[in-house]
Design a protein around this nucleic acid. Structure first.
Lengths: 338, 338
DNA sequence: GCCTGGCACTCAGCGTGTGCGAGTGCCAGA
DNA sequence: TCTGGCACTCGCACACGCTGAGTGCCAGGC
């Protein structure tokens, strides 16, 4: 177990390193933080911290920098979440309130997060697993062609064109529309399959094929929608660090282009609160020199999707976590209102 | 007017520079291209080309590199468009044919372009100015709340929630839906305003306010939709050139995040064919060291939107133009089919 | 037992100096 | 008009030495 002072030293190292972006030595530490001890003592503490793997030297005769493990300890034990100031909170709220539709909410959130944290922002579209169906609309495009429009309570609209096995009359269509809505409107996506199972039986034999086709398309859409989309922004912020890790920017950009990677990244975070994954804790290789700060957000109490930022391991964790948490809260509010 | 040989020399310089990314000298030129003259002669030609502003020296005692003006001449007079090979064309077609909806088409196109050209790809969503309305759907969410869903022939779906000034009954809603669709279905966006102008008059006085509100929201949506969205990909390719212009990557990334800038960029290209904007020809400062190759695409003969790539001025113009043109063609085909 | 000051050591970074070589411009001759 | 030759320029790579920040270790003090 590390002594209290050694933890202080580690905290000071992390803070200084995040600020200066340069390895920090024992003398500088005692000067900038009043630890009440001499550099020599700090050196001993540093040696101990290095033995334990919390800090490392880039090369002999250089200062120390925190390791992933050091950051982890810092985040877990040494630093809290820095709350946003009241003006900042107001600014967030104002900015988000101008949104006109879901796309706009997500786009604004991305820009906001990127600006606040000066890092790369990633926002997942609200998921539909927890969502409910607001309305299902069926339109006849041609005798044997139906357009299916699904409207969710999160404001998403999805459409599919269905080719029917047989012509389908307007009255049958209206009938199906009415029956469908009375059963699934207001219900959760996950419940829909069970609710419509026996629906074809209510129709004439010649229409049953079409009804089944429409229903299976609907179920398909529900599932597909679950494969989330996401939006990303602020990649220009990556270049702020390019002088430190110019060769790392490449794989990071590549990873950020792979939606699958990002979805996994966000998905891994299971905590109810803000989750931080540091350096090698990220499964994806290209992101081994970055940290991901993410959190779930949702319209009710429940999280329906995630958002977060990607930045260098050397980031201002308390501030970033505060910003991410605050943005998530306000996005949740906005979604609940609309 | 430049002599034929001098044009040859310019072409050779551009080709070599694109290939090697290093300033090219007179000796290397005569060795790699059989121009039939000695390096000394080439030097004289180079001096002339430099006087005219087609090439420049990064510093004394270095080889020459093409200027923006040089590239311009190269693109206009010295190089054609390199057509795709048959296997490449097949690959493009196969890749695009797997798309399930409009989002998917655009997403695939971006990835395809980025891969083919190994540069940053930008694809504008198909514009709606030329589009027609397939269907307008109205749903009652609450007594004084209506959801408006607009479905276009390009497969786009847009929705807006309308707060009505007064409660609006189901029958009135059905009436409005029917009248609206009979007037605008199949019509062009631009024609819609004139077609619905007198529609409120057909309704009872107490409903007219609501009808007007719904109609103006519809018109708003049509206009807003015109403010195009776009998708971008392949930014990781920028890093391939970072060793040449490490300080330029920042403004480029920033410019690429500004949708407005990109839309302007694509919008500027007026030619029916492939348009190339080189270096300082781009209005935006951040893109002064890049070239933009763009082209319109559309489902019929008409171009409904644009797509293109952004890369360093030192790019393989014939190949890039070929790829851009080919992709645009196939995307047009796909859109026409669906 | 822990902290402190002192001391010798290490080593990245920086500025200077030097040689190399690619490339140039110019000129006289074919 | 082209060519070969020649002197010149200058960026680049490498070697060298210095400096200073930082370290580890140790003996002495509280």
């Amino acid at each position: 177990m590390l002594s209290e002072r050694r933890l202080q030293v580690l905290r000071a190292i992390v803070q200084d390193y995040v600020g200066t972006e340069e390895p920090v030595g024992s003398k500088a530490l005692t000067e900038r933080h009043n630890l009440g001890v001499s550099p020599a003592t700090v050196r001993n503490d540093m040696a101990a911290l290095e033995d334990e793997g919390y800090i490392a030297q880039p090369h002999t005769s250089a200062g120390r920098i925190p390791t992933d493990k050091g950051y982890r300890l810092f985040v877990d034990k040494l630093a809290g979440v820095k709350p946003m100031t009241a003006p900042e909170r107001r600014a967030i709220q104002n900015f988000l309130e101008g949104a006109v539709d879901l796309d706009d909410v997500v786009a604004r959130t991305v820009r906001l997060l990127a600006q606040l944290t000066r890092q790369v922002a990633v926002v997942q579209y609200p998921s539909l697993t927890r969502s409910t169906v607001r309305h299902v609309e069926l339109l006849s495009l041609a005798p044997a062609r139906v357009m299916l429009v699904l409207i969710t309570d999160t404001g998403r609209v999805e459409q599919r064109v269905v080719d029917c096995p047989a012509p389908f009359g307007e009255t049958s269509l209206a009938d199906l529309r009415a029956r469908l809505n009375s059963r699934v409107a207001g219900r959760r996506f996950t419940d829909v399959p069970g609710l419509v199972e026996d629906l074809p039986e209510a129709f004439e034999v010649e229409d049953r094929g079409t009804v089944s086709t429409v229903l299976s398309t609907l179920l398909e859409t529900l599932v597909e929608e679950n494969e989330e989309r996401l939006m990303i922004g602020g990649t220009a912020n990556l270049t702020r660090f390019s002088h430190d890790f110019p060769l790392t920017i490449r794989p990071v950009l590549e990873a950020l282009e792979e939606q699958v990677v990002l979805l996994k990244l966000l998905g891994e975070a299971k905590d109810p609160g803000v989750t931080v994954r540091i350096g090698h804790e990220n499964a994806h290789e290209g992101l081994n020199s970055t940290s991901v700060v993410s959190v779930g957000y949702g319209s009710g109490g429940e999280a329906v999707a995630k958002l977060g930022v990607v930045g260098p391991t050397r980031m201002d964790y308390p501030g970033t976590m505060g910003a991410v948490r605050a943005v998530a809260r306000y996005v949740g509010q906005i979604l609940a209102e609309s």
